[in-house]
Write a protein that binds this DNA or RNA. Structure first.
Lengths: 199, 199
DNA sequence: CAAAAAATTTAATCCAGATTAAAATAATGG
DNA sequence: CCATTATTTTAATCTGGATTAAATTTTTTG
């Protein structure tokens, strides 16, 4: 018990391997679904044994939880950058979209689709839901700023947010790492998802 | 063995109950995820025992499979109606969107999110994938007709299709039956998802 | 190089939830 | 009503994959 918990939080060897594991897990979950991927599937991708994963994570539930935290982080990061870039509401939205897809299809990916939030344990579920709602709220606020400053046409921000987020969240369902398509997504998605907003 | 298979295909008592079961299953799967829903969860919603479900379906895999067939059918139906309504490409797209969301949030719903296709057995998986691809292809063709007839602006139809389908497919993740919101979706989504296409 | 700590594996358990078989109840048709 | 078929339940079994403990190998460090 002087093992994991005794570590410095910043132990990079551990953190790096753990991050590789989370990516592998996200990949499997997105491909084969939660139920369809066993710990062995994830371990195989890393050249490890299923039991080895327990060195990094308490159990499968926590593996999912960590994947979702990571996914939420990616969204928040894109949002933060877009906001700090300034500009009018429309520009911020478009930048957010670009940053988010760039991260998703880039080497930070794959990002897990949050399909199994309800099967997380209550504390984890609540935390992830809170992060998720917070992100949606920030996006809706961004849309409202755009409407206020005249760069975005009047619209139902809740529904518009749901539509755009859905399109983003679905990407990992059909994108599986092909570099050409990745470039395509980055080139097209920000425009596709924002062009309808112009006032 | 003179039971199920001896039935007339149109035996309405059986078909109706089975359909109720598929809706209950879709509801559970969308809420709690595939792994998170046991057959008991589905049975509880119907006031039945888990074992009773086996009267209608061979096993859990087939339950999912049937849910997905039903989801595919809903999409095809909306597409068929929109096409047969005629008009230019843009009008057809907008109508397709309206029909599809109407069905999804209406009493034909809930429609299962196809998150677990890979865990279907090969024959089923291939069939569902084929249906799914066929639907996407038809939608892309619709976009191309719109571009050809000048009602839709030049765009990458593949990416645009992916974006719009993603937004649609994600709806069951956040819509859970509230009638007010259902109306909202029907009122807003077709416009939100098509306004960016105008040429 | 020799502890000590970190990382992984081997080899069992363990268990929720799927599945099955037989029995019981409900519906239906003559 | 009776007989037959449809539907559901009860009460087991069965099982894949998660989990655990102990042993083993690898890495670090003084």
């Amino acid at each position: 018990m002087t093992t994991r918990l005794a570590r410095k939080p910043a132990d990079s060897r551990f953190a790096l391997k753990r991050d590789r594991m989370l990516k592998a897990a996200a990949f499997c979950f997105n491909q084969k679904g939660y139920s369809g991927t066993s710990l062995k599937d994830v371990a195989d991708q890393l050249g490890l044994t299923d039991a080895a994963l327990y060195y990094y994570v308490r159990n499968k539930e926590e593996l999912v939880y960590q994947c979702y935290l990571r996914a939420a982080e990616v969204g928040r990061e894109a949002m933060d950058r877009a906001v700090s870039d300034g500009g009018n509401g429309f520009d911020q939205v478009r930048r957010y979209l670009r940053y988010h897809v760039e991260i998703m299809v880039g080497d930070r990916g794959p990002v897990a689709i949050m399909s199994e939030i309800p099967s997380l344990k209550p504390e984890h579920r609540d935390e992830v839901l809170a992060l998720s709602r917070s992100h949606s709220t920030r996006f809706e606020a961004m849309l409202e700023r755009g409407i206020a400053d005249g760069s975005i046409a009047q619209c139902d921000v809740r529904m518009t947010g749901n539509a755009i987020m859905g399109a983003l969240n679905w990407i990992p369902k059909w994108f599986h790492g092909d570099a050409t398509i990745a470039q395509n997504i980055v080139d097209e998605f920000p425009h596709i998802l924002s062009s309808g907003l112009k006032s």
